[in-house]
Design a binder for these strands. Structure first.
Length: 164
DNA sequence: GCCAACGTTGGC
DNA sequence: GCCAACGTTGGC
């Protein structure tokens, strides 16, 4: 056992993804075919690198940015590993990247699926009141990263806050 | 490799 | 609409 080539199931990881609800909300996700969407349009290397680390089954906090109030709206999960984002090659797309080489695509996306919507969204202000969440990337000053890791204990605490 | 200029994010 | 914080670009 435990040979070098033995594929060991990795423990589930947790993430947070931001979306402006006026562009794509958690309700839009729930209303999508198979309640699934491709997370295209990410054009930040750090965010892309986090998506590359994602695996099916990983859990995602779906965050509404530029919203009133900004809040975690619910949960989604990764259903497909990172693969090339076709919008980078689409001249008509706002996320078109002329510098990306089709032979070595620069940008990738994952597919995510709706899991549930919180009965009560967890507002940013509310999250800031929680000492257990002090370390969250989301709460760091000036944090703009649209795809970010969430620690397991942060995830568990948020689940407690969200109720069921 | 530095850094000023510029564009974007996102809370307020 | 403002603007701080951040990432990227490009001249040098």
């Amino acid at each position: 056992m435990a040979g070098r080539d033995t594929k060991k199931a990795r423990t589930r990881r947790y993430w947070l993804m931001k979306s402006e609800p006026s562009v794509f909300s958690i309700d839009d996700l729930a209303a999508s075919p198979k309640q699934t969407t491709s997370w295209d349009g990410v054009r930040n290397y750090q965010a892309r690198n986090f998506m590359r680390e994602m695996e099916p089954g990983d859990q995602i906090l779906f965050y509404h940015s530029n919203a009133d109030p900004p809040a975690i709206a619910g949960i989604a999960e990764v259903v497909k590993q990172a693969y090339p984002d076709p919008t980078q090659f689409d001249k008509k797309d706002t996320h078109y990247d002329p510098a990306s080489d089709p032979g070595a695509p620069r940008w990738e996306m994952v597919d995510i699926k709706f899991v549930r919507k919180f009965t009560q969204p967890l507002a940013l202000d509310r999250l800031r009141e929680e000492s257990q969440l002090k370390g969250m990337v989301l709460l760091r000053k000036g944090s703009r990263l649209s795809v970010q890791p969430v620690a397991e204990k942060e995830w568990n605490h948020i689940m407690k806050l969200a109720g069921r």
